[in-house]
């Protein structure tokens, strides 16, 4: 039994070590953001520069816009950095966020089979969607209340397609993130709406290519919001504000413009405009 006691002592020591090791006191803020900013590699490019300038680390939890806002509503984030203006304004109106600042935009692209069976190719997103619906070509939807999903639903509505009535086997509601939806579309050779950044960083393209781009309606505005410290007193207000200020500063905006994949700029800074 002395051995048992030794064993227990070893266990407890290990636990203590691990516990203290993982709770290392570092200065950080938690940002709830979208898969598009994380998976396109933008944060990997931006955050080290901010941390170097401020000494503040940024922990990014990448979710859909809807989930990110819900996470912030529960008080689990200091800052939200998302792309669904209507949902963001609602978030602030409910008193969860302090104020919203535009940071940058990228654009959505309609992805589809290079053979374009629905003849959706062109510069008009609404016409493209109408043709997909008419041809009943397979279409993959995020279906996860993300910013991209919200945008997709807006375009269907604007195109005059009543999804509830027209929905059929051709319309696949996948309830998944951008990457998973892209994988699904690649394997089904289906159309889908994606943000350009994730698309450019995406490697498993199969037979897919860009079908519609350049329509001004496809612009996708990103906003940043400080979670209301009155509502959630543990929010790291000062450090979070530093991050927001840096994003909209000349330095931050330049970093955003500098991020390129294969020479192509993904995000276009437009703070204060």
């Amino acid at each position: 039994m002395t051995r048992l006691r030794t064993f227990l002592a070893v266990c407890c020591t290990t636990l203590l070590l691990v516990a203290t090791g993982t709770q290392a006191q570092e200065r950080f803020i938690t940002v709830a953001s979208t898969t598009s900013t994380e998976q396109s590699g933008l944060f990997g490019h931006l955050l080290p520069a901010f941390t170097k300038a401020s000494g503040i680390k940024v922990r990014v939890v990448a979710l859909g816009t809807g989930q990110a806002l819900d996470m912030a509503r529960r008080g689990d984030a200091d800052v939200v950095f998302v792309h669904d203006q209507a949902a963001e304004e609602k978030f602030i109106a409910e008193g969860y966020g302090v104020s919203r600042q535009g940071v940058m935009y990228n654009d959505f692209v309609l992805i589809g089979p290079k053979t374009d069976p629905a003849k959706a190719i062109g510069k008009d997103i609404l016409e493209g969607l109408r043709r997909i619906e008419t041809a009943r070509s397979p279409f993959v939807s995020r279906g996860d209340k993300s910013g991209t999903h919200a945008a997709e639903l807006r375009y269907w509505k604007a195109a005059g397609v009543d999804l509830e009535a027209k929905k059929g086997p051709w319309y696949r509601d996948t309830g998944s993130g951008m990457g998973s939806a892209l994988n699904t579309a690649a394997s089904m050779n289906a159309y889908l709406l994606a943000d350009r950044g994730t698309w450019l960083a995406f490697k498993n393209r199969g037979e897919l290519g860009i079908v519609v781009q350049g329509d001004t309606r496809l612009f996708n505005q990103y906003g940043v919001i400080l979670v209301n410290p009155v509502r959630h007193p543990h929010v790291k207000q000062a450090d979070s504000q530093k991050f927001i200020d840096w994003l909209v500063s000349a330095a931050g905006q330049k970093m955003i413009a500098d991020y390129k994949i294969d020479g192509e700029q993904l995000f276009f800074p437009n703070a204060g405009r």
Binding site: G44, R59, V60, V61, G179
Partner: peptide, 24 residues
């Protein structure tokens, strides 16, 4: 964990992330 880079990113969440980036 939130799959935070450098903080809570483990083998399985990295695999899930790379899958969704299409880097099979």
């Amino acid at each position: 964990g939130g799959n935070i880079d450098g903080v809570t990113r483990v083998m399985t969440t990295t695999i899930a992330l790379e899958t969704s980036k299409g880097d099979l």
